[in-house]
Design a protein around this nucleic acid. Structure first.
Lengths: 178, 178
DNA sequence: ATATTTTTGTACCAATTAGTTTAAAAATAA
DNA sequence: TTATTTTTAAACTAATTGGTACAAAAATAT
């Protein structure tokens, strides 16, 4: 799948030939459907956001927003423990990679990113209204800070953060949403 | 200067020819001194960390650790206001770019990054001992969380965070160190 | 079965890349 | 001045890139 390949390797580090291998189609039929590598990547960004929100939505309906956020943290430390690495969010990764270099993609990433932000805000607001989640912050602020910290964790790990640094950030994330 | 060029454009997105133009030397004399583009970049990473710590050290001696951290935040929002963009820390940027692709560079980035982390921990500990900085966290935890949040801010902005999202994260940073 | 549409594989193209070679030019030393 | 070293500019290599062209093959429809 193209999306997964881009997710793992990034946009520029994915040669079109390799992506096509991952898709299982030939160059000819690719250019019959898509106009360029960039257009394909754009579709992958959109798909990623959709799938991500669909998954989070179903999880939220089952266990609530607060537990969904905590699950995001658990999945992150699980990935780190089992694989020894963190891939991070495709939107954040691509945001950095495209920043100041691919205007159209950057614009789209912003849209997808803010769409996800809106989902988190709405979800958290539900739990606040229900009284499940107690916080001195607004849902907007809480969502912003939580995701910023979680995405920062990926960056920190990729730069070489030690286990106790990771532990401290995870603790912070859990405190934020406790 | 090579370091500044790499800082602005990243490692792979800096063609050697462009870097040499920024250095003002020819290809011939470059390969007389350096063995490869990667070796030059490695030297730039080291130089960046040194300069950064030198600057922070002198600032800390003048205004203390706590105010130095706050200054980092102010400089970030100043860059965002005046240029409309954030370049971020070279080590964090390179950490992400080299992660899982350039083992030697990744290892080095980790060393430089942890060296900076040690500086922040020691500096914050001084202010905690002096009673200037009150916190329920250890210096290590505070440094980790503060830098994670600040580096996360860069990532968030590059992905397209809105002004009020930035504002909320900045507020969080100030609260952490208040 | 025959006609039509898709898909494939292969050979290309033009641009870019890091790195090498070399002879001329410029700076430095004697 | 003369000899030596350093630096430059330009041509070059070999590999990779996104994208195109096209004829053969495969799938689909009538």
């Amino acid at each position: 799948m193209a999306m997964d390949y881009f997710w793992k390797h990034g946009y520029e580090n994915s040669s079109l030939d390799d992506v096509l291998k991952a898709m299982g189609i030939s160059k000819g039929s690719f250019y019959h459907v898509f106009g360029s590598k960039e257009e394909l990547f754009s579709k992958c960004l959109q798909l990623y956001r959709k799938k991500q929100i669909d998954y989070l939505q179903s999880l939220k309906e089952k266990i609530g927003a607060k537990e969904t956020m905590l699950r995001l943290v658990e999945m992150t430390i699980e990935e780190l423990k089992t694989t020894g690495r963190l891939t991070g969010c495709l939107l954040m990764n691509s945001g950095k990679e495209c920043y100041g270099r691919y205007e159209d993609l950057s614009k789209q990433i912003r849209e997808e990113y803010l769409t996800m932000q809106r989902f988190f805000v709405d979800a958290l607001q539900e739990d606040i209204d229900k009284g499940v989640l107690k916080t001195s912050l607004s849902a907007h602020e809480l969502s912003t800070r939580f995701m910023n910290t979680l995405n920062g964790l990926v960056l920190s790990v990729q730069a070489g953060a030690t286990d106790d640094m990771v532990e401290s950030i995870v603790k912070q994330l859990k405190e934020m949403i406790a």
